[in-house]
Amino acid sequence: MLVLGIETSCDETAAALVADGRTVLSNIIANQLDLHRKYGGVVPEIAARRHTELIGYVINEALDAGGKSLSDVQAVAVTAKQGLVGSLLVGVAAAKTLSYALRVPLVGVHHIEGHIFANLLSNPEIPLPHVCLTVSGGHTLLVYVRDHCRYEKLGGTVDDAAGEAFDKIAKFLGLGFPGGPAIDRLATKGNRKAFAFPRPLLKAKSFYFSFSGLKTAIINAFKHQLAGGEKLPFEDIAASFQEAVVEVLVAKTLRAARESGVSAISVTGGVSANRRLREVFTDTGDRESIKVYFPALSLCTDNAAMIAAAGHARLRRGYADDLSLDVIPNVPLEVQHAG
């Protein structure tokens, strides 16, 4: 089955063609970073306007790049849950129109479910059940994946998302937006043990994370030097901050896997592209005989191939939506499989 995926939940306008939930024929992503950079974050109204301008071109490009025409499309999958309401709405309006005009099934997908499937697209061999950590600029969520489309939440963040902490520290250090890649680069030249930043909730029994206090601790520790024009050891700060975040994410996810009795961990989302996170996860996993999987780099950040793959799985389980599909900006992943 050829599924056209559409994703517009934040600031990427994306469309993709995926065959049988496995083969990515095209994966087009129009990035809006240049529009949002000067604001230090995503501006919802600007994002929604850009999606409206781009959506047709991106869908057309996905078909062209995949060597297919509209009449080849057998279903349309779209991110309808979790994201900026004005942004989600553009993708859903386009998807509904395609479904209506082409007379093909429509399926709404939860954005996080898309990320879970990004890793399954890259690594179809990931065994079930497994534990999945989704870490991005907007999300930090730990779930037990019992089966495709069946999730149980284990934990999440109580304040900032992990990627949000990267963005805020990068902004503080003047590294620009988005902060993840900038900190990753800078950290390779720094000493991870230069500063002993807090490891929030590391010892807590729950699987919840908190990154807001870590961010504040770092800002408070250096803001006077920064204001006084002192030259700060940026590389060491970046490396030590990244180490604190990575240590907490890895320790809690590994413990969740042990306690759930699974032998595989899937790490997805934009932060899963972070090199140090991959390194520590893989090394720690190896020591405990738990295999850790990461998506291809092209599928870490928001994309529509993962939405098409998730949509395909949902359709196979009979979770199709009708033309009254609406957007839900904020809804837990685990309650959505009821369709």
């Binding site: 409206t52 869908i59 129109t97 395609l98």
Partner: peptide, 16 residues
């Protein structure tokens, strides 16, 4: 928000 719905639907109807 309202306009974006109509414009997107109209555009995609014409495209399809």
């Amino acid at each position: 928000t309202g306009i974006r719905i109509g414009v997107t639907v109209g555009k995609m109807l014409a495209y399809c």
